[in-house]
């Protein structure tokens, strides 16, 4: 009996609550612990639906050791900000930001095409992050407010982001935030069509951070 649907479903759940990149590294390590053949079998099942996983495995096989989370560039970009609105989940990066920015008020948009139990996601941050709905984004508006999402690569003026960024940062909300940032969590190219992601012109961000 094929394990494929279960594996894809498990990855979908993990990606929704941890992020596409964080889930990719988690699953990669779990499979790799059982050998290269197990990882290759997992790749055949997951990669066609999740190009971020495919890119992470490709990078791993080319020698990448894992996600490198360095919040310094982000901290510099949000210097002086009192509020940071986050669009999209990447657990490793969010954990680093929460630890590194203890005085910032943080909110996470609780909307995603990926399934997520948002109360469980928010609970992971020990009270430092509150959930905010699409209709309540204006509660985070301000001259010291920053909106930030995660980028899954930058290619010829295009930045790949979760589609919720495009829903959230319309012409009405863009002027409500001092900075519009993308934190690049996937410094490797995707070889497959970027399912689950959307293209945003890089010029529409005030900064794309490594």
């Amino acid at each position: 009996m094929s394990r494929a649907p279960d594996l894809r479903g498990a990855f979908l759940t993990a990606a929704g609550e941890l992020g596409l990149c964080a889930a990719s590294w988690l699953f990669l390590r779990a499979a790799r612990a059982h050998g290269a053949a197990e990882l290759e079998a997992m790749r055949e099942v997951i990669a066609p639906s999740f190009p971020v996983f495919d890119a992470v495995v490709e990078a791993f096989e080319r020698g990448s050791a894992g996600p490198s989370v360095d919040a310094r560039a982000v901290l510099s970009a949000i210097d002086g900000a009192t509020r940071v609105l986050l669009v999209g989940v990447e657990a490793d990066h969010l954990d680093a930001l929460v630890a590194a920015a203890p005085t910032c008020e943080l909110a996470l948009l609780t909307e995603s095409a990926l399934p997520a139990d948002w109360s469980r996601v928010i609970a992971n941050f020990g009270g430092r992050v509150r959930g905010v709905r699409l209709g309540d984004l204006h509660t985070f508006a301000g001259p010291r407010s920053v909106a930030m999402t995660f980028a899954y690569g930058v290619d010829h003026g295009t930045t790949y982001v979760v589609p919720e960024w495009l829903r959230a940062m319309g012409p009405d909300t863009r002027p409500h935030f001092r900075e519009l940032l993308a934190w690049n969590v996937l410094p490797f190219p995707m070889r497959r069509y970027p399912r689950w992601l959307a293209e945003a012109p890089t010029a529409t961000f005030t900064g794309v951070l490594p």
Partner: peptide
């Protein structure tokens, strides 16, 4: 100059 947020 105020930000144009909903009047809530």
């Amino acid at each position: 100059v105020p930000m144009r947020v909903p009047p809530t």
